[in-house]
């Protein structure tokens, strides 16, 4: 059953943000498994099933939450790689960022991002935002698990 629930891939380097995001997802009662990649290259490893993800269960994640500012390979590069690869192009990518910089936004949309969310400072706002996102991409786009329903 669990395997039926689509995996959420979260690329985020900051542990606090990871914890808060997971908390927000929890707050929204989302039970999708969440894979956390600590930087861009790890996220790409997961998608390509290589290195530590070489033997993971095959299949693309149901939702890719991507932070822009990450060490090694940053979010924009990851986005470009995902959207230029026919295998991953259909993965819904939501950019989660603290940045309100216009150039990031323009860049992201040019690369074909599915949504762009500025992380609100207030936690409840953040929970709200994650709820909308998770609900839309992870739940509404897929048949919900029978148990949840």
């Amino acid at each position: 059953m669990i395997a039926d629930v689509r995996t959420i891939l979260l690329a985020e380097d900051n542990v606090n943000d990871v914890e808060l995001t997971l908390a927000a997802l929890r707050e929204n009662n989302l039970i999708n498994p969440v894979v956390v990649a600590r930087d861009g290259s790890e996220a790409l490893d997961y998608l390509h099933q290589r290195n530590r993800y070489a033997d993971r269960v095959t299949g693309n994640p149901g939702l890719f939450l991507l932070d822009l500012k990450m060490p090694k390979v940053d979010g924009i590069e990851v986005l470009r790689a995902v959207k230029s690869d026919a295998r991953f192009r259909t993965i819904p990518v939501v950019v989660l960022t603290s940045s309100r910089e216009e150039q990031d936004l323009v860049h992201s949309y040019n690369l074909g991002v599915n949504a762009y969310v500025v992380k609100p400072v207030a936690f409840q706002d953040f929970v709200q935002a994650v709820k909308l996102l998770g609900g839309f991409w992870a739940i509404l786009n897929e048949p919900p698990p029978a148990r949840v329903a």
């Binding site: 606090n16 603290s98 940045s99 992380k119 400072v121 953040f126």
Partner: peptide, 17 residues
């Protein structure tokens, strides 16, 4: 915009938690 806001978010986030 990116880095200064992050700790704030964490403060409010964890205060809420």
């Amino acid at each position: 915009s990116h880095d200064l806001r992050a700790p704030l978010r964490h403060v409010t986030g964890f205060a809420a938690l």
